[in-house]
C-alpha cells in the first residue's frame, strides 16, 4: 500500500509517498537521494547503515520507513552544518578514523549519539557505543582515538569548515 510519510529528516520536514514495505535505508538512499548511509550487508550485520531516530542509533536496514511517521531522523549528511564538519567528523578525519570510508557514516552517527549523552566517554564507553559497527580497515585503534579527539574538540566548541574536496 502507498502512503505519505511525514518525517523530519536532518532538521527538515518532508512528506514523501512511499510503499509500506520500503526500508528506511532504501527510503534515504533511493527516494531522498541521501547516499551517505551505506548498505554493507544483507541485514543487521555490519552497522554501516546506522542512523539516529529521535537521537538513538538505529539500523536503517531493519527499519520500515512507514514506522517513522512524525519521527526525527538524522543521517551523516545532517551531522555537520553550514558547510562545517562536526566535531565527530573532524575527529574521524584528523585522526584517520576513516580509511576506505565506507563504514564511516555509521560510525560518525553512532559516535555523535554517544557524545551527546556522554561528553567525555572512557575507552570502554566508546567501545560499548560502537560495538555493533564493523570496520575492516583500521583495526579500530584510530577510531577510538578519533572519538576521544572529537570529545576534546566538542568540549572546546570547535567546528571546522569543510576542506577543499580532494579527488577520487
Amino acid at each position: 500500500m502507498t502512503r505519505v510519510l511525514e518525517i523530519e529528516l536532518n532538521g527538515e520536514r518532508r512528506a514523501d509517498p512511499i510503499e509500506d514495505n520500503l526500508l528506511l535505508l532504501d527510503y534515504l538512499r533511493e527516494t531522498v537521494g541521501l547516499t551517505g548511509t551505506k548498505t554493507g550487508c544483507d541485514g543487521g550485520e555490519c552497522g554501516a547503515c546506522t542512523v539516529l531516530v529521535d537521537g538513538v542509533p538505529r539500523l536503517s536496514c531493519l527499519t520500515l520507513a512507514c514506522s517513522l511517521v512524525h519521527r526525527r531522523v538524522e543521517t551523516v549528511e545532517g551531522a555537520g552544518a553550514d558547510g562545517m564538519l562536526s566535531a565527530v567528523q573532524r575527529g574521524f578525519h584528523e585522526k584517520l578514523g576513516a580509511q576506505c570510508g565506507y563504514c564511516t557514516p555509521g560510525f560518525v552517527v553512532a559516535a555523535t549519539a554517544l557524545l551527546r549523552w556522554n561528553a567525555d566517554p572512557t575507552d570502554d564507553e566508546i567501545r560499548a557505543a560502537l560495538g555493533s559497527n564493523i570496520c575492516r580497515c583500521t583495526g579500530y585503534v584510530k577510531i577510538i582515538e578519533a572519538v576521544r579527539h572529537a570529545a576534546a574538540l566538542q568540549s572546546k566548541g570547535v567546528r571546522a569548515r569543510v576542506a577543499r574536496p580532494g579527488s577520487c
Binding site: 555537520g80 574521524f92 578525519h93 584528523e94 585522526k95 578514523g97 576506505c100 574536496p165
Partner: peptide
C-alpha cells in the same frame, strides 16, 4: 590527514552503488 577525508566523514564520497 588524508586529502579525501572530508568527503568520507561527511557522507559526500560516492561509491559505485
Amino acid at each position: 590527514p588524508m586529502v579525501d577525508g572530508p568527503e568520507k566523514v561527511s557522507g559526500r564520497a560516492r561509491y559505485t552503488a
